[in-house]
Nucleic acid binder design. Sequence first.
DNA 1: GAGCTACGTTTTTTT
DNA 2: AACGTAGCTC
Length: 721
Amino acid sequence: MDVSYILDQLNDAQRDAVTADSPGTLVLAGAGSGKTRVLVHRIAWKIQVEGLSPYSIMAVTFTNKAAREMRTRIEELLNNNVQGGMWVGTFHGLAHRLLKAHASEAGLPDNFQILDSDDQLRMMKRIHRELGLDDARWPPRQSCYFVNGHKDEGRRSAHIDDPGGDLYLQTMLRVYRRYEEICQQQGVIDFAELLLRALELWRDNPAVLSHYQQRFKHILVDEFQDTNAVQYAWLRILAGRGMPITAVGDDDQSIYGWRGARIENIQQFSKDFADTRIIRLEQNYRSTGTILSAANAVIQHNSQRLGKELWTSGEDGDPIALFAGFNEHDEARFVTDRIEELLKEDYRRADIGILYRSNAQSRVLEEALIRAGLPYRIYGGQRFYDRLEIKNALAYMRLIALRDDDTAVERVINTPTRGIGNATVETLRHYARDHQLSLWKAAVALVQSGGLAARAGNALRGFLSLVEDLAEKTAEMPLDEQVDYVLSHSGILDFHAREKGEKGQARVENLQELVSAARSFQPEDPEEDILRAFLDQAALDAGDQQADPHEDSVQLMTLHSAKGLEFPIVFMVGVEENLFPHKMSMDDPARLEEERRLAYVGITRAEQKLFLSYAESRRLHGQESFNSLSRFVREIPNELISEVRINNTVSRPTSFANGNLAAQAAAANGMALGQRVLHSIFGAGVVLSFEGQGPSARVQVNFEDEGSKWLVLQYANLQLL
DNA sequence: GAGCTACGTTTTTTT
DNA sequence: AACGTAGCTC
């Protein structure tokens, strides 16, 4: 068979990585070095050349998007559907699949449900109330961090040492225990639990483990630097007896340490998996030589690296542009001005990415883009399935599937309002706690025993029969009709329609969108209960975060969400000390290195042109701060950078450290930045910037009607207002 | 049950 | 600054 198509068009290192037959293979894939390509071609190689059955291959990713992309590209390359039976999915997705197949061995009910982060937080709030913890002193969110943090490290409450007299640990431990108890009682599991249970399933059931050890002949793991302790242990236990494993990752792009990812895993790999071969992909096909030199220079300042240097056979390209704005508005205006120029040069809006460290920075940029009439799209933000109205609707669906789901009961027992007030719910909670029952069972018991006032009892009975009725009437319906029926008969649709303003309208539209989602939903396994599959998907899949890719628009996102993407033009904004690196990360060397990796990720997103900008003064969270240029920019060699001046001429930077020079110069000339002034011809405006002194002193004024202009102070005759 | 006010929060995000 | 939430009142 001719398999040259698998190796054609690959460079030597890529070819090595695709064909390596070592038991352990660690591919250190630099940014833009063709990582996904190598993974996909390696799978094709295993199937077509080594003769592995797709059934015996497992490929793990972190996001559903990455999993989908891998599937599609395998399909394209192999030109048919030979991937049937292959396990391709996220860690969470595969763990879920495993637990469904072995629910009883894993100690779960057959119809267990997934608790997403929002559900988890609500559950935690209930536990705090039950344990009499004051939310002000004990924030429920912190308890979630505590529980998740320990689960990510593989520790259950029973594994945590006696905290002795430490009140904080004592309390957290009580919360953790109770949380575990309640989840078990209700048959719900959170995201971290999904992974931990899957690990324990294999650890404690040798027969189950051995089944999968015999089945799989090769494991491939994407973004290995993002694995946490439990994911790593899960892979180790499966591959334990010499199953070949390929890990692909980049230690320089590890940016999720704060949520449990352990960069050490990639360093540990060659020690834990026998005869590991390390292959480096260093040739970059994305960026210009200048951009790569900058990226290499920055990342070199990190210790603890496996070592890698990106190179390209392409052009050096343009220097990196650096702009110092007077404040964040000035910075935003620079960005939109530049975008308008670029659009005249044949770039499309979608070619442009604006990257920032924190979400709060987007607002000013958005305002500037709107003012300039530039369509934009923000990545990330709230998931479709996290919206209030959608969660309400899904809560009814969840109750149809599993009545014991307390989170769902709490959410909709009085939504829409049906006269079940707080007092009734509180009685219910007590009864449930005292009798170790779910809220649903407690409600049934209370209604039957008549232990409630007549009005409350009737209202509660109404809720119970509503849910029973929904379940009964929709049992035989196709999924979308079922959703539609639930929306209208639960009263949720009317409830949200009655909300005033555009909010209600938007919510109704989202609910209608939920019906369409149900209509086009295709379960992976047609045998499975479709409602359950739909609910699982809602919990595990973020849905399409980037709505409508058809409209040509500028792309805004955090540096974190930019990982894996690329743009011909990149603006990295807010490159200031305290913001980037973020001040929360500055005193810990390890976290500072993670910030630097984030800078590396940002720089390497750019294909042709990279713009860096910062604001000498920035208002954030209502606080004005004056920050100097980010150390990461100072780590880029000067000759790669050209400083952009406000009048759009370009020159070499004189000094980087002059954070507030303009303000000082202005003050020396009796002006202040931000000062309102009047010009005899141009009218009123605000002083934006200042430079020079004596007869050459120039001032930049943003006039209300004329826009911003540089004027020689001596001749401008400005009147202070 | 709606509307008001006071208060807390605000790094990064997936599953 | 801006937004969400909790708790209060009518």
